[in-house]
Every structure is written in C-alpha cells, then in structure tokens.
Design a binder for these strands. Structure first.
Length: 548
DNA sequence: TCTTCTCGCACCTTTGAATAGT
DNA sequence: AACTATTCAAAGGTGCGAGAAG
C-alpha cells in the first residue's frame, strides 16, 4: 500500500547511479539559508500573538523546520534549461513538466509528519512573446489563473519517509484549461512562472489552527519557466528531446547515424528535422549579422556536442540567446527559504494527519462538503479532493463551480468536477519579479493568490468578512484520485483525457480528508499572509507586504 | 497576415498482468 | 506452493505538423 508508482519512480530515480544522483547530492549540499535567513520577528509575540501553552513544542517544531534542507535533483539539467530559457508545454489535457521537479530533503525529524506541496506562481506581471530568437515582454500579464496546489501523493508522511528517497513531483501536470477538472495546475500561456516547494509540518503537535504549525518554502530560481502551447526556442526543444525518454522518438538520427557520428569523433553534427526547421525559422526571423552559415554551424556544433553527451555550450552564445536566464548563474540560486510558524488562528481541529495516512478512506456517508467562498465576480467554486486510497496520486486542492459543470456539457453531473486543488479567482499579480529578484523584493504570494482566498472557513485576505465560516457557499468535495477513478472505468460522456477520470466519477471526500484539506488551506493561508512579511530570499531585500 | 492554439498522429517509455521457469 | 524472470499488450508521455481561431 505504501508503494505506489510515484514512490517507485522516486526510489528508482534515487537509486539510479550516475549524474542524476550526483547532482542530487550536490544539490543537497548546496548552500542552504542559515537560520539567520529566517526572517526575525517570527515569534508569536512579534506578531502580536500571545505565547501559547505549547511554546516548547513550538520551539521544537520551528527548529525542525528550520533544519530542513532541500536540494534540487538534476540541478545541472535544470540549469541547462534555464540558461536557454525554460519553456513548459501546457495543454488542455495537462502536460507534465520536464525536467520534472524532484528534490532531496534532509534535516527533517524522522518521526514527524510533513506535507510536501508545490505551487506555481507568476514570476512577474508580463506577457511574453518569442521574437528574434529571444523572449520579449509583450504586454501586461493576463489575470492569474485559479491557483492550485499540487500536494505530493505521499503526504502526509514522516520525515524518515521523505528523506529516504528523492521526492518526485513528476506527475504534476500543467494546463491552460481554465476549467480544468483534473486538478492540474492552471497557467496562462506565454507567461513566466516560478514553482515553489512548501514543506508543512503536520504532526499531532501541530493541529489545524495551532499557533505553532511550522512550514517552510523553497524556491529554486532555475526552475522558473515560460509556459507555452508549443515550443518557441529550438534549444529548448532539443534539450527536451535529448533528455526526456518519452521524446526519444524525435531524436534527430537513428542509432546508425549516431553510431556513425560517434565513430567519426564528433566531427559531424547530428541534426534533427525539427532543429533544421526551427533553425530555418530562427534564421529568417533573425536579421542579425551573426545569423550566417557560420552561426548556424556553431549552433549545429552545439547541438552535436550535446547529442554526444558533451556539455551544451549555450552559455557561450550571444546574450540575446539567453533571454530567460533570469537568475544570474554566478549567484548561488540554490534556494530561497523561509521558515515560520502559524500563530493567527484560534481554531483547533483534528488534524487528518493525526491518523495514519494509510488509513482506509471513510465511507461516502461520512463525506463532508464545504464550499470555498465566492469572493469575486468570477469566482469558481469547486469541491476539492484529496485521495488517501491511492496516496501516490496527486492530491490537489481546487475549486470548481457551476461553470465547470455547465461547460462540461453534462447536465446531470453530480457535484461539479473536482480536482484536487483549491482555487479561487485571482487578482492581478502583485509585482514581484523573479527576474529582478536581486533588487526587487520577492513576494511569495500575490495578495490574492488563490491558495489563500480559497481557504475554506478562512476569510479571504481581501474580503475577510464576506463569507463567514459556515457560509453555505463553502463546500468541500473530495473526489477520487485519477487512478481510483480509472479503476472504476468510464461512466460518463464527459470529455476526458485518455485515461483520466470523468469528473462525475469522483466521490466526495471523507471527513478526515476534508480536515486535511482545511489544514493545508490554513497553511497556505499562513504562507500568503505571513511569508510576505517574513520571506527572506537570502540574497535580495526583504519587504513587508500587506494585504490589499 | 500573423500569432497562438488545438488536435491527431507516430514513436517511444512505462507499467502491470500473464506466463514460464526455478 | 512460492518466488523470480520474462514476455507482451495497454496505457500514457513526447514533439510534430497541419489546420483552426482570433
């Protein structure tokens, strides 16, 4: 039961010899913010919270979280992409990220349970276009998509569990479907994003609403990317093809060609049809003097070098070829970090994590529903779900609403689709720029970032009193994970991705899962409200950030 | 006309069940 | 009977490229 695909994959990757593991180790050893980086003033007193009776526990929890170190797996690969300007395909059905987000975690308390989750936030408020072989700002960003969290399917799990192997988020999918019913993370095309990893302490000492709930956030700047519906930069295309096993079929030459090339001591570049085509396009677009046969040859050589396992030489290309290199490589960008404790809530609910995460799901009859508030005009309501039956599946928090059911074209759908994420409408992105992080304060969450406003039973940050707890607009929906649904087989005509469940096949959540959702919501709430005050990049400035 | 998006496709890896062998 | 290794088909992940949409 403990073993599922996700874990197996992670373990396999972790065990895999060679560069991947080495990189992971190196990443783990990468400089990690010292405790000093944790912004001061995290104490309850500093924030106006009275010291609680669990001060000792709080201190222990905080220390535990502060000691957590996270290393990005395949950091070198990420850097290669980053130097070329990482692009991630987003599709209606959802597309995995590549490189996938994998981390090695250390410093956890082996016996304490943690929840690991990822969110992807806008890196700036611009829309981009790929012109003249480089990314250029093309205007103001479109309104942010409903924010969603991707909770690692193993969550919650003990520190020993997380530290035992690589933690892989490779099943995380990105979509541009605003009404995505599958729980994928929704993004806008041609926008820049920054994934973030959150580690939430989730043991019995940190009951929901506790003042002492601790968590930390890690950001690896090299994982930032521009979302696209089709690749723009042929360098990225080639990197994907050469590194992603699933794209092996697009590698420029067959085995014999590769063998020939290798036998010929790399004297001849191996160029795929795609790269030829894209280079033609690039050449046509570029009126630059350096766009010449020699230039093309240079690129071909670069490609060839890569084909043959040599390091890519993109760094040697002209600056304009590195438009998305938003994080200067000379700067240690291992991670941004913050650590803090929740201290603003008086609620103390049972934590789902108090129970074994292997615990069998409750019967349908025990399912709870609560709604997220309809705070804004375009608010999308949706149930959220979190699966424990198939813990390896993504557990995302989202919202959905009548629009979704309507759009689905299925009138008799049971409670609207759900995904595992939480979402809500998102206000325009507040300005923080990863690109200029060294000088612009990093604001981890937009003021109205969805993961905060969707918080069930927690007032929206910007409309705190609009939906009091218990408001009928709050609901919880806990559909089955995709794999669970898949086992049941198709039962509806709802448009679906191959192998993905129809929305109406999902079932409501069990009470403890709802509580889990709530816990996570609360954590996100804390992140959004407090991290802004305490987030510390370690290399940039720290700016207080206030609501509204 | 241009840019962006959608969809079907071929190709590939991954997964897991079925089967054979020890 | 239990365990391991192998085989094979289905599921699912890729980028490509034509055409649609705005």
């Amino acid at each position: 039961m403990l073993q599922d695909k996700g874990l197996s994959e992670s373990e396999e990757a972790f065990r895999a010899p060679g560069p991947a593991l080495g990189e992971a180790s190196a990443a783990s050893a990468a400089p990690v913010p010292e405790p000093a980086l944790v912004a001061p003033g995290l104490s309850g007193a500093a924030l106006g919270s009275p010291p609680g009776p669990t001060a000792d526990v709080a201190a222990a929890a905080e220390q535990t979280v502060e000691n957590i170190k996270v290393g990005l797996h395949e950091k070198e690969l990420w850097k290669k992409f980053h130097e070329a300007g990482t692009e991630m395909i987003i599709t209606k059905a959802g597309r995995r990220m590549f490189p996938s987000y994998k981390v090695k975690v250390t410093g956890m308390n082996p016996k304490t349970k943690y929840i690991l989750l990822i969110d992807i936030v806008p890196a700036d408020d611009h829309r981009y276009k790929f012109c003249d072989n480089k990314w250029m700002v093309a205007g103001k960003a479109e309104p942010a998509m409903p924010g969603r969290l991707y909770v690692h399917p193993d969550s919650p799990a003990t520190g020993a569990h997380w530290m035992r192997q690589l933690v892989s988020f490779q099943k995380l999918k990105l979509t541009n479907n605003h009404l995505d019913p599958f729980g994928h993370i929704i993004l806008n095309s041609m926008h820049k994003y920054q994934p973030r990893l959150h580690i939430v302490k989730a043991d019995e000492n940190n009951a929901f609403g506790s003042k002492n709930t601790a968590f930390c956030t890690h950001v690896f700047p090299e994982t930032s990317f521009i979302s696209v519906t089709s690749y723009q930069n042929h360098k990225i295309t080639q990197l994907k093809i050469e590194n992603n096993p699933f794209a092996k079929g697009f590698r420029g030459s067959d085995d014999s060609d590769l063998r020939v090339a290798r036998l010929q001591s790399k004297e001849y570049p191996v160029i795929s049809k795609s790269i030829m085509r894209q280079r033609l396009v690039s050449t046509q677009l570029s009126a630059k003097p350096d766009v010449s046969p020699l230039h093309s040859a240079h690129q071909a050589i670069q490609h060839y070098q890569y084909e043959n396992g040599a390091h890519m030489q993109f760094a040697a290309t002209e600056p304009q070829d590195l438009p998305l290199n938003t994080f200067p490589t000379q700067r240690d960008s291992s991670l941004f970090y913050h650590c803090l404790k929740r201290r603003d809530s008086a609620r103390h609910l049972d934590l789902p994590c108090k129970r074994s995460y292997l615990e069998a799901p409750s019967s349908v009859g025990e399912d709870l529903y609560f709604r997220s508030p309809p705070p804004y005009d375009q608010q999308m309501l949706s149930p959220s779900y979190c699966s424990e039956v198939t813990p390896r599946e993504a557990c995302m928090y989202s919202g959905s609403g009548p629009e979704i059911a309507g759009v689905s074209g299925v009138d008799d759908l049971p409670p609207p689709p759900l995904s595992c994420n939480m979402w809500t409408s998102v206000s325009p992105y507040t300005n923080y720029s990863v690109q200029t992080m060294e000088t612009v304060p990093y604001q981890p969450f937009p003021t109205h970032f969805t993961t905060t406003t969707m918080m069930p039973r927690l007032p929206p940050i910007s409309a705190q009193s609009s939906q009091p707890p218990g408001n009928p607009h709050f609901s919880v929906y806990n559909p089955l994970s995709q794999s669970q649904v898949r086992e049941r087989g198709p039962t509806t005509s709802f448009p679906r991705e191959r192998g993905l469940p129809s929305v109406c096949e999902r079932k409501p959540p069990s009470p403890h899962l709802s509580a889990a959702n709530e816990f996570l919501y609360s954590q996100s709430f804390s992140l959004s409200r407090e991290s802004s005050l305490q987030y510390h990049s370690g290399m940039g400035t720290v700016e207080n950030w206030t609501d509204g």
